[in-house]
Each structure stands twice: as C-alpha cells, then as structure tokens.
C-alpha cells in the first residue's frame, strides 16, 4: 500500500529529472541505471533501503569474500601467490578445492593465539586509559560554555589535520633518551640518567592512547552533551550530592557513549601495526605484526588471510554484543 505511494513518488521524480536532463549524457546514464535497477526490482523505497546494503556489499562483503577465498587457498610461488579455488578440470567439470589447512595451522602454533591475546591486552589497557582520560575531557567539554564547546571540539579534532604517521614520529622525539622529556628532567636535575621510554610497552601505550583518544572523546561528548541537565537538578533536588549524582545518573546514562567510544578505540588498537612498530620494543608481540610477517616475510598470503579472517571473527563478537545492547536499549527507548 505504502509501497505504491513510493513508486508514484519515484515516477514523479523521474519525470522531473527527465525534463531537466533530457538528451544530456547524464540523462542517458540515469535512464540506463534506472532500467537496470527496475529489472532488479529496486525502485523508489526499494532503492533507498538498498543503498546501505550496496555500501556494505561493495566495501565490506566483496573484499571479505576475496580475503576468505585466499585464506582457503594454498600458497604457491606465482602471480598471484595462491592457488585458485575453482578450476576447470579436463572434462569441463568445476573442481572446487577448499583448503582449511591454513586455519588448522593457526591452531598448531601458539604464536598466533599469544599474539592475539597480547593485542587484546594492549587494546584493553589502552581503551581503559583512553576512557579514564577521555571521559573527564568529554564531560568538561559538554559542560563548558556553549561558545567554548566548538573551540574545544575543534582542538580535539585538530590533530587529524596532521598525518598520523608524523604525529607518532613526533612522540619518538618526545620519548627518546635525548628527547624532550629526558632533556627537561636532566636540565632540572630531577634525574641523572635518561629514563628509557622508547622501545618499551609504555611508549606503545602512549602512542595508542594519544592516537585514539579523539575516538573516545567524540562519541562520549556527543552523548554527554545530549544529557538532560534537569535530570541532575532533579537528583540534587532529591538530596543527591553532585558526585553521587554523577555515578547514579550521568554515568549510567552515558553507557552507550562509553561503549561506542571503547569500540572505536579497541577495535583498531587490536590490529594496530604502525605504533608498536615505531614506538614499541622488539618484544612487543602483536597480531598486526604477525599478520605483516605472514604477508610480507613469509609471502604466505593464504595464512595471512586466515589470520585476518580470524581477527575479524574475534572482533565481531564484541560488536555483536554491542549491537545486542543497543537493540535492547532501543527497545527500552533510552538509547
């Protein structure tokens, strides 16, 4: 019933665009796309619904399918460096070979598991630190004078205007033995010997927390800014002191922001490669590095793909948990 209405609307739009772009090349393309979409049963409402799916298909599912395909192949010295899954046999039959050895291989060597766990550990600690630093920042931004908020927001986003790599390099200059921190401490006589910070896990945490902090602050800020101030007044009115009001009102209501921010930090941090490579010590074992080794050092694209798929699957779990949480919240109507 409503579908019909949409189709009419779609027709009207088409008619309008036809008038505008008659006989132009753009009109040609439009007509062509339209015919194609109509054939596929996608018009009006259907088209609107299809856009996110097309996006997902184009930028997630198709690449994912490629990687999945490679992960089921065998490594060979050839171009491309893996076997085909589907082959035409002599009598024109299709021969499909699925090779799960790559996945079994991941289970044989505890390197992968340890690297993954270590990555998760690093990501968890970084996320927690980001939360502890980011929450008060987001909170004070959301509570700041509205005129100031945009300036503060701008300051949080500002680092993105410089290359990520440059910013990580800058940390080398700050943390190294004759870097900014050590030189200042030495100059003031606080220390006699430089403190070794580079090539340590500490440097990795500094790098990750620094790089991903904005991803924690922004969703938290968006959440806290929307928080209805009268709720806090109501709490105060009912005899609740500000600190307690924070824990019983502000904090619980900002959980969606906390989860969103944490996921935005946690997920990329798990697969982080550049920061540990530049700031970390040789013993920082992370899954990103293992993946790199598989791909570039071993030239084993199938095993590398298997590692990638495994990480993806392990990362999807927290996302799904979050989805469920959000769905529950949406059902509860407070999200």
């Amino acid at each position: 019933m409503s579908r019909k209405a949409y189709i009419t609307l779609g027709d009207r739009i088409t008619a309008a665009t036809d008038l505008v772009s008659q006989s132009s090349w753009w009109g040609q393309i439009q007509t062509w796309v339209e015919v194609l979409l109509t054939r596929l049963g996608l018009r009006g409402q259907g088209l609107v619904v299809a856009i996110p799916y097309l996006w997902l298909l184009l930028f997630f599912l198709i690449p994912f399918a490629f990687v999945l395909k490679i992960s089921l192949a065998e490594a060979v010295i050839a171009r491309p460096p893996y076997t085909a899954l589907i082959e035409w046999t002599e009598d024109a039959f299709i021969d499909i070979k699925l090779n799960i050895a790559n996945y079994l291989f991941l289970l044989q060597d505890d390197l992968y598991w340890k690297a993954y766990l270590n990555s998760v550990k690093v990501a968890l600690i970084s996320t927690a630190v980001c939360l502890f630093i980011g929450y008060p920042m987001a909170y004070s931004m959301a509570r700041a004078n509205p005129a100031w908020r945009n300036v503060l927001l701008m300051l949080v986003i500002l680092p993105f205007w410089t290359s990520f790599l440059l910013r990580v390099y800058a940390w080398i200059g700050i943390l190294k033995n004759n870097g900014v921190i050590n030189n200042i401490l030495l100059a003031f006589g606080i220390i006699d010997e430089p403190i070794v910070m580079m090539q340590t896990n500490f440097a990795v945490y500094v790098g990750i927390v620094y790089s991903y902090l904005p991803f924690m602050i922004l969703p938290l800020y968006a959440n806290l800014e929307r928080l209805d101030n009268t709720l806090l007044e109501a709490a105060a009115d009912l005899g609740c002191r500000p600190i307690k009001a924070f824990f019983s009102i502000t904090l619980p209501l900002s959980i969606p922001g906390i989860i969103a921010g944490s996921l935005l930090v946690f997920i990329p941090a798990v697969g982080e490669f550049v920061i540990p490579a530049l700031l970390g010590g040789p013993d920082t074992l992370m899954i990103g590095r293992v993946l790199w080794d598989e791909f570039f050092a071993n030239r084993d694209w199938p095993v590398a793909s298997a590692v990638a798929i495994a990480i993806l699957l392990l990362l999807i779990i927290p996302i799904m948990v979050f989805q469920r949480f959000q769905a529950k919240e949406a059902e509860a109507g407070t999200a």
């Binding site: 490594a75 010295i77 060597d109 505890d110 390197l111 340890k114 690297a115 040789p282 013993d283 920082t284 074992l285 293992v290 080794d293 598989e294 050092a297 071993n298 030239r299 084993d300």
Partner: peptide, 19 residues
Amino acid sequence: DPKFTRQLTRSWTRIKTGQ
C-alpha cells in the same frame, strides 16, 4: 625456499619477542 622462510620468520619472532 618457502618452508625455510617460514621457519626463519618463526625463529626471528622467537628471537625478538621470546614467543
């Protein structure tokens, strides 16, 4: 050869990380 490469990479990781 690829097999040796893999062993070397694994050995290298062990040397670097102790894992």
